[in-house]
């Protein structure tokens, strides 16, 4: 089907202008919902990065000396694996430890530069069978005196609390965001429906002279997509802004040491950005798609 780009651009432009207030309402709703969604995602990612090493029931970590020998490593590993109180042990070697260090201290470039891979302590991450704090404490302490062990670090109560709060906050925020997303779809649907009503004479003539269904639909579909994409663009700016403000607040505050690890990597930000654009398109396509298929029959 021959589709004149200028025609589509002109029709879409007219529609957007004609329904300015409704268009604005749709865009703002999309933007607010996607900002909430993106912020929740970024926050969860940040906390996830910060507490990455404590995932999956890991309750303590046995850090070895960087100079520990292979025998010492083997001996500690065997002791952990043979212990009936331990359900899972995973070994983190020097390169992996260095990667993690780089991520955790991404905010302090000088620190990362001062350390090299060889100076990193290899470690064992241990998930015990029990959740009894005293038993775990005793279990971990037992390894403190083993040859080649540098220190045993336990999951802080704060880490656990962080994880719990993040989980609850994420669920609440995402719930609100989903609610708003549905509202956004309905608003777009309604806006497109109004646009079609405003153009009912044109649509009638188009049908009579033999314009295809798609030709009639496409400008309205694009209008919906524009709502979604513009809303997503605003949301992306909002999320980046929030992240930036948070980042600055942290850099200036040495007291919040625990948040040092709260760093969103470039690829995580790209993922969030793409996700928001995708969601924006989806909302726009959904709203306008329902509108054109329900209210534009030949």
């Amino acid at each position: 089907m021959a589709m004149n780009i200028r025609y589509v651009a002109r029709e879409t432009g007219t529609n957007l202008r004609r329904n300015f207030s409704l268009t604005l309402a749709s865009v703002v709703t999309v933007a607010v919902s996607l900002t909430l969604f993106g912020a929740a995602l970024v926050f969860a990612q940040g906390v996830g990065n910060m507490t990455a090493r404590w995932k999956g029931g890991i309750e303590f970590i046995v850090f070895m000396q960087p100079s520990a020998t292979q025998e010492q490593l083997d001996s500690v590993q065997r002791a952990l694996e043979d212990n009936p109180e331990v359900t899972q042990v995973s070994y983190v070697d020097k390169p992996a430890a260095y990667e993690e260090f780089k991520q955790l201290f991404a905010r302090s470039k000088d620190m990362v530069e001062a350390v090299d891979e060889n100076a990193m302590p290899p470690s064992f991450r241990v998930a015990p069978a029990t959740s009894d704090a005293d038993v775990i404490q005793a279990l971990g302490q037992a390894f403190q005196k083993k040859a080649g062990v540098r220190e045993v670090v336990f999951a802080f109560e704060t880490v656990r609390t962080m994880q719990r709060i993040t989980r609850i906050a994420s669920i609440v925020i995402v719930g609100v965001a989903v609610f708003l997303l549905v509202a956004a779809v309905l608003l777009i649907l309604n806006t497109i429906r109004m646009a079609m009503f405003a153009r009912r004479r044109e649509i009638e003539v188009m049908k009579l002279v033999g314009a295809t269904n798609w030709f009639i639909r496409v400008p309205f579909m694009i209008e919906g997509l524009v709502h979604g994409i513009v809303g997503a663009a605003v949301a992306i700016v909002g999320v980046q802004g929030l992240n930036w403000a948070f980042d600055r607040g942290l850099s200036n505050n040495r007291d919040l040491k625990i948040f040092q690890g709260f760093v969103i990597s470039g690829s995580q930000m790209s993922f969030t950005t793409l996700l928001l654009v995708g969601l924006g398109c989806l909302i726009g396509a959904l709203g306008s798609g329902i509108a054109v298929s329900r209210f534009l029959d030949v």
Partner: peptide, 11 residues
Amino acid sequence: AFALEVIGRPS
């Protein structure tokens, strides 16, 4: 022109 435009006739 509209009648031609909407059936995809070139300008």
